[in-house]
């Protein structure tokens, strides 16, 4: 069986909102170390994953490894019935075909229970090479959302150039072009005027072109974290990571656009 009590429903609500438009259904993999998920979108361009470690729950009990097939649209609707500050208890009894979600209000005077039907999903797991990235950018997640939204008005893709100076996002379209440069905070020629919280750690400069449609989907995870880590190497998928407090993370991998 699985019983996992999450002190704040808002965390689970935000996680589901940040993947439901990329993946329609997937298995939640539960083990004694926590709850995780990995799935690609239908076009095999973006992979979404998350991990919530067992110690983020209080208490957490999972007797054996489980794969629980969830339809995100249903889970999202049910989680809308939970208050942000409610406690959520996720419960699965062995061999059942439902997952129970119990929401308890902060004063414990209102307890609601919803059951969601589980699906039998034959999911494919991808093995992601464990690699060192040539460039690691860390920046404000709300700034990242704003840039993706602004550049979407210009074009369908963005070129991200990361150099020692900072990180530049550029888009070109039929009607014109636009770019935003975020300088590294605290760099010498930018003292006191840098955008707070931008850092670039690099082995060599990286330039990648990415679909803005996907990036705008990833920004739905911004409410989970003040910052986003963008890990890049030339010519390979980019990894975006939003930390979920100190209990886990959401990661997105996005295949780049390659020059013909």
């Amino acid at each position: 069986m699985l019983e996992a009590r999450l002190p704040q429903a808002s965390i689970l609500k935000k996680i589901v909102e940040s993947v439901k438009d990329l993946v329609s259904q997937a298995n939640f993999d539960c083990s004694d170390s926590g709850i995780s998920f990995q799935a690609m979108d239908e076009s095999n361009i973006a992979l979404s994953s998350f991990l919530l470690r067992a110690d983020g729950f209080d208490p957490y009990r999972c007797d054996r490894n489980l794969s629980l097939g969830i339809k995100f649209a249903s889970l999202s609707k049910i989680l809308k019935c939970a208050g942000n500050d409610d406690v959520v208890i996720i419960r699965y009894m062995d061999d059942a075909d439902i997952l129970s979600l119990v929401f308890e209000s902060p004063n414990n005077e209102r307890i609601s229970e919803f059951d969601i039907k589980l699906l039998d999903i034959d999911s494919e797991y991808l093995s992601i090479p464990d690699q060192e990235f040539e460039c690691k950018v860390k920046m404000s997640s709300s700034e990242f959302s704003r840039i993706c939204r602004d550049l979407m008005t210009i074009g369908a893709s963005v070129v991200i150039d990361a150099t020692k100076e900072g990180v530049k996002f550029s888009a070109t379209g039929d009607d014109g072009s636009g770019s935003v440069l975020l300088k590294q905070s605290g760099s010498i020629d930018n003292e006191g005027r840098g955008v707070v919280g931008t850092s670039v750690e690099m082995v060599e400069p990286v330039s990648l072109e990415l679909s803005l449609k996907y990036l705008n989907n990833f920004t739905k995870a911004a409410p989970l974290s003040d910052s986003v880590a963008i890990n890049m190497s030339n010519g390979i998928p980019v990894m975006f990571q939003f930390d979920v407090g100190d209990i886990g993370y959401i990661r997105y991998f996005l295949a780049p656009q390659i020059k013909d």
Binding site: M40, S43, N44, I45, A46, L47, E124, Y125, L126, S127, I128, P129, S157, E209, S211, I236, P237, F253, A255, P256, Q257, I258, K259, D260
Partner: peptide
């Protein structure tokens, strides 16, 4: 002009 790569070009199935 550029074209969208697939993740399957980079990641393998387990």
């Amino acid at each position: 002009k550029s074209s969208q790569a697939s993740l399957m070009n980079f990641f393998s199935k387990k």
